[in-house]
Amino acid sequence: MQITVNGRSISINEGLDGEMPLLWFVRDFVQLTGTKFGCGIGQCGACTLHVNGDAVRSCSYPVSALSEGDAVTTIEGIADGEKLHPVQQAWKEFDVPQCGYCQAGQMMAAIDLLKQYPNPTDEIIDQNHDNLCRCGTYDRIRKAIHRAADLMAGKG
């Protein structure tokens, strides 16, 4: 089966265990380590990436759930070359990360949230953004999501 990861064509061999979570396939077979392991049960969101543009918690998403031609996007694939994605830019402006381990998942979740709610209220963020950050960067994440919404609406 052929899929793409960040636009690059990747083969999934028949012999690969279909139960393998997409997280480990991306980390150990595609060698993209930006997507992180946190809990293995879809609770913390550190492993969030996109399949066909939708955020999924890849630790609990088996490779067998993928279909021919599916497009997987990880944190490494969202910038436009030198130019950061507006969410990355907003994260930079608010100096969001502390340890930074969960932030790939936070940003991938935020991109999906902004796709559904281009101008989210605090309440919408509260209800829809539930990735865990053990350093406690929530205040800055909230501000950065609002800022990214502005950037994406051209209100740079």
Binding site: L32, T35, L84, P97, G100, Y101, A104
Partner: peptide
């Protein structure tokens, strides 16, 4: 001063190295 971190962009691009990497 609130100077910018030279490593921040590396982290935001998913290219920072943690132990597990």
């Amino acid at each position: 001063k609130d100077v910018a971190s030279p490593r921040l962009e590396t982290l935001l691009r998913g290219e920072e190295t943690f132990g597990i990497d």
